[in-house]
Design a protein around this nucleic acid. Structure first.
Lengths: 344, 344
DNA sequence: CTGAAAGCGCTTACAG
DNA sequence: CTGAAAGCGCTTACAG
């Protein structure tokens, strides 16, 4: 394989010049630049990432801080789509992804590689409440970071500000709830995420409450249960909600998989969807289209969130500090077959 | 951050010795080794991967050759589970994964990074027929490789032998078909993968035919349709099969997602599963449990396949040439609710 | 605008 | 069993 010396020799310039051309430094004459480019082309030269890392102090690796067991991660279609977005942008920059998942065996050391500049140039945190600690450590270590989700800063704790990207959970939930209210539903069950787990869930709950308030209603604590985002937990949650009396006529699940689980419990109870019970989800993952009936839901631009997070990280690498902000992407209401008028 | 010189200084030895201790070279006295280890611990030293790569000619990256669009990949639960297995083993060895997916914009150059020793130490090919070409190029370039699926060698073309790992597709399909036959089914529809796409599908088809032959039956060309593994394609495939007359009483889909799609078409036609129609899948992905009714299927050890493939690659790195073989993992028949006796 | 030279942090023959 | 030294392939001040 050709190295930078071969290129320099062929182009009759120094390696320094070759390096400059390749890193797009200005102050290289067009003629020289062209000679170098020709040599690069003719030799099929591509620089060694290892050498570049060693010298330039870049690793060409982005760490992914994933506060879930790998076992869970790979089954969460929403997260996978976010990661797909990150991967696409990383790829464009010749960066690889380092998956760092929480491990049962070594929870405290799970992210140690992310805190070590020897491994990564920056990290994308797939945020949960649990990441507060990681957030702090990253701030201390000075490693560039972006959070998918709500950073501490968005919670009003301005001591820790991590640039973040997320969907407008509040408005999405508001819209979902209004939809149910417009259909005449008054008793609406909620399947929330794990208690005190994610800011996103709190936002969705706020949106829900606001919509209720618009209709002059108050949330009923009996009508809220928690799940862990898996379909199975949605089944259990559905069973609980369908024991409350009087029965809810609609269920708003804070993600699609739990919504599909709730459908299952409803069907087992002999309820027809949407005639006896309306169900609406959140995310719009593939499962939402595949379910029977197809799920009415709130679309989150998962891929776009991932891409935006990655772009932000690269912007930080380039020293664009002013982008240390919260990027909020819009959600979209998707009407399908799982919601209908309140039964009369 | 501490480097190898700091460690050497503290331990009062040369950097060469530190290096030897860390790479577990024998011929270092226990006393020296202990001094070095102490220094490493006290400094919190961890070697620079970049420098190691540069010197040792290792990149600490495994390439994943994925002959699918990223858009497809991240939605295929079976593939994701295989990758999860690969990731776990890679992680144990301090290796990262480089995802290389087929790109519409640049199909020919999609895997170029995999063929460049500057990027990866080895590659795992997620095999399809299309990988023949890649297989050849990898052999030429001499980059260590393992195939998830059937290598060319297993097709009898011994000129190209890539070590491979896959499930026993033949026996799995045999068992699935026998199950249907035992329930009395005689007209069994098949949803195959894309025509001439993967050896795995050919193997499943062979297993199917063998079981039929055992029952004195011949495959009926009218009862076989092709899909592309997506749920949507399963819907279309199901519709086609349910137009054949006389109707099939059972459908064997070569993956779970298409099976669930076929369920949808059956339901739309007013057929009850399993009373009017039995459906069996292949893979046993999460969706199989989530479907309604839960899907009877053939379990493939997806995670185990991934792990085995990765282990094999590391074995090759270590010079264990004798493992250049085909590893076949067993499948398992999973009885759930989507299959039943032939309607009378 | 261009180049000589040091240095990034390791590993690997080689000599002892 | 241990160490001196070259070298991996780049980039970056620095000098011109």
């Amino acid at each position: 394989m050709a190295n930078i010396y071969d290129v320099a020799r062929l182009a009759k310039v120094s390696t320094a010049t070759v390096s400059k051309v390749l890193s797009n430094t200005p102050y290289v004459s067009d003629k020289t630049r062209q000679k170098v480019l020709d040599a690069v082309f003719n030799l099929g030269y591509s620089p060694s990432i290892a050498a570049r890392s060693l010298t330039g102090n870049r690793r060409f690796v982005i760490g992914l801080a994933i506060p879930y067991e790998p076992n869970y991660l790979f089954r969460d279609p929403f997260l996978m789509e976010v990661i797909q977005g990150i991967e696409e942008i990383a790829n464009e920059h010749d960066y690889n992804l380092l998956f760092t998942t929480a491990r049962k065996t070594n929870p405290q050391g799970a992210y140690s590689r992310l805190l070590n500049k020897g491994y990564v140039d920056g990290v994308v945190i797939l945020e949960t409440v649990k990441s507060v600690e990681l957030d702090k450590k990253l701030v201390e270590s000075g490693i560039p970071r972006v959070s998918v989700g709500y950073s501490m800063g968005s919670k009003g704790n301005l001591a820790i500000v991590t640039p973040s990207v997320h969907a407008n959970d509040y408005l999405g939930a508001l819209e979902a709830t209004r939809h149910l209210l417009n259909l005449g539903h008054r008793r609406i069950g909620i399947i929330n995420g794990p208690a005190n787990f994610m800011t996103a869930m709190e936002e969705r709950y706020k949106g829900f409450c606001t919509a209720l308030a618009e209709a002059g209603l108050n949330p009923d604590p009996e009508l809220m249960v928690n799940g862990d985002f898996t379909l199975e937990s949605g089944i259990v949650a559905g069973q609980k909600l369908l024991q409350v009396s009087p029965l809810p006529t609609a269920i708003f699940s804070f993600n699609d998989r739990m919504a599909v689980g709730a459908m299952r419990s409803a069907r087992e109870k002999g309820l027809k969807i949407p005639y006896d019970l309306s169900i609406i989800g959140f995310d719009d993952v593939e499962l939402a289209q595949a379910s029977d009936p197809p799920l009415t839901t709130i679309h989150q631009p998962a891929m776009g969130i991932g891409k935006e997070a990655a772009r932000k990280l690269f912007a930080i690498f380039n020293g664009d500090i002013d982008i240390l902000t919260e990027t909020i992407l819009p959600t979209e209401f998707i009407l399908r077959g799982s919601t209908g008028p309140v039964p009369t």
